[in-house]
Amino acid sequence: MPRPVPIPDEVSKPFWEAANERRLIVQICPPCDLLQFPPESICPQCNSAENLEWSEVSGRGTIDDYVVIHDSRLRLFVEEQPYNVAIIQLEEDPGIQFFSNLPGTPVDEVPVGASVEVIFVEGAAPGQLIPEWRIVH
């Protein structure tokens, strides 16, 4: 997949740096005991930035459901159509979602509910690894 290369910002920089080390991290607010992804500048529960930290997670999850994109608005993906996009629920907290194209899984043959694990892949240009997910058999 010729993936658009993410441009880290001040809030997301640790996430993308960790991805380049093949580690998956999400934000956590320890007093609220709440994980957060995508990252934000404050915790949505206490509305404070004071206690926000990054926490490495297992990289395991399940496939919640999926769609098959046939008419993408993204120029780089038009040539790849049709392609799967699954919603992955994180093992530690199913409320935390990641997108995945499930590399290696045939189009529209997505096993909903299956276990997955994180992998890291290159984007359209080298230099930034992107988290992806593959089915655990």
């Binding site: 658009p4 441009i7 994109i69 993906f77 997108f99």
Partner: peptide
């Protein structure tokens, strides 16, 4: 590239 909010969506199409 995927700047701003697109960094959480565009890399996966």
């Amino acid at each position: 590239t995927a700047p701003g909010r697109a960094q959480w969506t565009s890399p996966w199409g």
